[in-house]
Design a protein around this nucleic acid. Structure first.
Lengths: 222, 222
DNA sequence: CATAAATTCAATAGATCTCTTGAATAATTG
DNA sequence: CAATTATTCAAGAGATCTATTGAATTTATG
C-alpha cells in the first residue's frame, strides 16, 4: 500500500477515513452510534439494512478507525472511537449545508418550520434548567435515551407524545431534542406541542452536540 | 436522486461531500488550494496529474461544493469555497491521526524530528513577532507565498535555503512554516537551520490554520 | 452436547470510480 | 482569421464498492 512517498501515503490514509464516510447508510449508522453504543442487529433494525450488510459497513468503519467494538456474550457492541468523530461529522454537515444547494432545498422542504423555531443554544438551556424554567424533553426511542440523555430530561418518544399532551403545564416552556441538528423528531415534537398551545422550542443540536460542548450527560442503569 | 425519504436523502448529500474527499489526489489538490487560488495547469504540475485528470477531479470537487472557480482570460482559477472546508480537512486529519495506526507509523517514520520540535502556537508567534523576537520564514514556493503569507514573513523556498544560510543572525530565533501540520518543508527547514546552529522552530500548522484562527494574512501585489 | 442466536466470512453480479486517450471548445495572439 | 494555449468533454478499460446470498464461526442455553 505504501508508495514510499510520504505526502501521498499520508493523504491516502486521510482519504481512507473520508471513504468510510462516503456512503449515506454508513453516515446513518454513525449518527445512531453517536447516541450511544448499539449491537449489530439493533443497528440493522434501525437502519433498515440486512444484518450481514450492516456488519460489513461496521467493519469498514472500524478499519477506518471511526468506531470500535467490544464483545459481550454473543453480541458485539459498536460505538464511536471518540468525540472527534462527532466533530468530524458536524464539520461535514456544516460544509454540506453551507455549500450544497441540494441540502438547502431538502432542509427547506422538510423542515419548513425551521425559521419559526429559533433553537435554544446548549449553554442557555443549561442555565434555564438550573433555574427550573424549562422542561427538557427527549423524543428519541427509549434505548437511546437509556444510553445517555440530558440531565433531568424526560423521555417521551414522538409516537407517544400525543397521548401525554395534557400532562404538560402550559405555562412551563418545553425544550425538545433528539439525535442531531437535522433530526426530524424534535421538529415534529415542537410542532405538535405548539398546536396544543404549549410553549415549545428546539435545542440547537442533539445529544452528540451537547456532549461535545462538554456538558454533563446522564444515563440510566446499564 | 431523491427517494422522498428526508433523512436518507440528506445523508446521501453529506455522503457526496465525503466522497469528494475520498481520494488522496483530491485531498492534495485541496491542500494546495488552501494556500490560495490556482489555475488548473498549475495544480496539474504540483500534483503530478495530467491536466485532463486534474480538471476532472476539480469538477468533482466543485459539484460537491468544496471549491469554486472563476474564468480569467483563457485560464480557470479554482479556490476553496470557504474556510469551513479547511476546518473540515483539519477535522479529517485529526481523526485519522488519532485513530489510524498507519498514520501514526507514517508520521513517526518520516517526521522523526517531530518530538524534538515543540511547535509554536499561532497566538504565541503573533506576540513574538510584535516584540521583534523572531523572524518568520515561509518555505513554500513563491506562487503560494504571493497568494498569501504571514505578515512580515520572508520567503525562502527550501531549495534555496542552503545558499542563504549565512544571512541569518544566529541570535535571532526563526519560526518556519509551510502548508499545514504535516507539510515536510517546514520540518526540513528547521532541521537544516539547526544543523548550522541557528535557533529554529516550527509553527503549529501552516497558512490555512493560521487563517482559520482569524489572524491577519498579507499578500503580494496581485 | 445438540441447538439456537448473533455475527462474520466468502463469493458474486452489477454499479460506480479512476485514469487514459484523443477530440472539442473557448479565449488569446500574431 | 489561423495558430496557440488552457480547459473541458466523451468514451472505454480496469479497479473498487455495494448488496445479496448462503455458509461458517462463536458463544450461550437447555
Amino acid at each position: 500500500m505504501s508508495t514510499g512517498n510520504f505526502k501521498h501515503d499520508l493523504f491516502s490514509q486521510f482519504a481512507r477515513v473520508a471513504k468510510a464516510l462516503s456512503n449515506g447508510y454508513r453516515l446513518e449508522l454513525l449518527e445512531f452510534l453517536a447516541q450511544g453504543e448499539r449491537s449489530v442487529d439493533a443497528l440493522a433494525q434501525v437502519s433498515g439494512l440486512t444484518v450481514a450488510n450492516t456488519s460489513q459497513h461496521l467493519q469498514l468503519l472500524r478499519q477506518a478507525g471511526l468506531v470500535i467494538n467490544r464483545k459481550a456474550g454473543h453480541k458485539v457492541y459498536y460505538r464511536l472511537s471518540g468525540m472527534d468523530v462527532s466533530a468530524l461529522l458536524g464539520s461535514l454537515r456544516e460544509v454540506a449545508e453551507r455549500h450544497l444547494a441540494d441540502v438547502d432545498r431538502l432542509v427547506d422542504d422538510y423542515l419548513k418550520v425551521k425559521d419559526s423555531l429559533e433553537p435554544v443554544p446548549a449553554a442557555q438551556l443549561l442555565e434555564r434548567v438550573r433555574d427550573g424554567l424549562v422542561t427538557v424533553l427527549d423524543v428519541r426511542p427509549p434505548e437511546e435515551y437509556a444510553a445517555g440523555h440530558l440531565p433531568g430530561a424526560i423521555n417521551i418518544p414522538l409516537a407517544e407524545l400525543e397521548q401525554q399532551l395534557n400532562e404538560f403545564d402550559p405555562s412551563q416552556e418545553i425544550v425538545a431534542y433528539c439525535r442531531g441538528p437535522h433530526c426530524v423528531l424534535a421538529f415534529d415534537a415542537v410542532a405538535k406541542l405548539r398546536e396544543r398551545g404549549v410553549k415549545a422550542r428546539r435545542l440547537d443540536g442533539g445529544l452528540p452536540e451537547w456532549r461535545m460542548e462538554g456538558f454533563p450527560v446522564e444515563s440510566s442503569s446499564t
